[in-house]
């Protein structure tokens, strides 16, 4: 229960916070505003504002690759979330509830955690020849697998944390009733860790939607790339494509901002649990 002192309005806190919020909000607002400005308004001196959907029509015209790239990114997100949820909940459950020694558990988690400490670019040469050997270079399947590798350690740790909170007795009584291990996991334990699965899904979806480095290095660009590569391709020093850039950036950022507003609580939980434990 908040005491009187915590309900008081402290200008010493409110004013700097207002400034910080504004400094975060304005640059984001800028891209939203520019995305609906006629190009003339952007490239003339001084300030004039209008409204047009021309930038969006331009980037999503059929001759442009961006609509295909949005589709690619959606497929990558769906595939990565599915793989991370299934492999991550299995691994998290095994490490949490199936009697591995503390030493084994820590060894597995540390081995998985090391992957996330290495700069992905330093692994790119090795990953490049690996995907090449598997015939997956430039494919969406290859990108799904790479996104999965770098998100799976986090997904496993987070699922373990949630399974740790489910009482032992529940699993044991399910087994006593004759359910198989697999059935116990799918029908009894997994539903109880559903909040963890939701947090994993949101986190992995954001990470794989935003992923750029593998999309850039493992594909040949154009219609084979995720949308993040498409946005980067618009930034050309000697070409003014601000309108298209802003429109595409808005199309990619708005779903995430909506998610940030709607699922704020989940995101905070996912980031803190995963980051601190991992």
């Amino acid at each position: 229960m908040p005491s009187d002192s915590s309900r008081r309005i402290r200008l010493g806190a409110e004013l700097p916070l207002a400034l910080a919020t504004l400094l975060v909000f304005l640059p984001v607002a800028l891209i939203l505003v520019l995305s609906v400005q006629p190009v003339v308004n952007i490239i003339t001196e001084g300030w004039s504002f209008g409204f047009t959907m021309q930038n969006f029509r331009e980037v999503f015209a059929p001759r442009q690759p961006y609509l295909t790239q949005l589709g690619n990114s959606t497929i990558i997100v769906a595939g990565t979330v599915a793989l991370c949820l299934s492999a991550g909940s299995l691994a998290g459950y095994s490490l949490s509830r199936l009697g591995w020694s503390a030493r084994t558990t820590i060894l597995v988690l540390v081995a998985a955690g090391l992957v996330t400490l290495i700069p992905p670019m330093a692994l790119v040469p090795g990953l490049y020849v690996t995907l090449d050997a598997l015939g997956l270079l430039g494919s969406l399947a290859g990108l799904v697998l790479l996104n999965t590798v770098f998100n799976l350690p986090f997904a496993s740790v987070l699922m373990k944390v949630y399974f740790d909170r489910v009482p032992h007795e529940i699993r044991e009584s399910a087994l006593m009733d004759g359910a198989s291990e697999l059935r116990t996991f799918l029908r009894v334990m997994l539903p109880l860790a559903a909040p963890g699965a939701a947090a994993v899904a949101i986190f992995v979806a954001i990470m794989s939607w935003n992923e750029f480095l593998f999309g850039l290095t493992m594909t040949t660009g154009g219609r084979t790339s995720p949308i993040t590569v498409g946005i980067a391709s618009l930034v050309q020093p000697y070409q003014i494509t601000f309108g298209e850039m802003a429109a595409l950036g808005t199309a990619v950022a708005v779903p995430i901002i909506v998610l940030a507003i709607v699922a704020n609580r989940w995101i905070v939980a996912a980031v803190t649990r995963g980051a601190v434990k991992g």
Partner: peptide, 13 residues
Amino acid sequence: LIAPVVVSVIWWL
């Protein structure tokens, strides 16, 4: 939470 590429584009603008 926004894609780092979009953050970069925002600052390019």
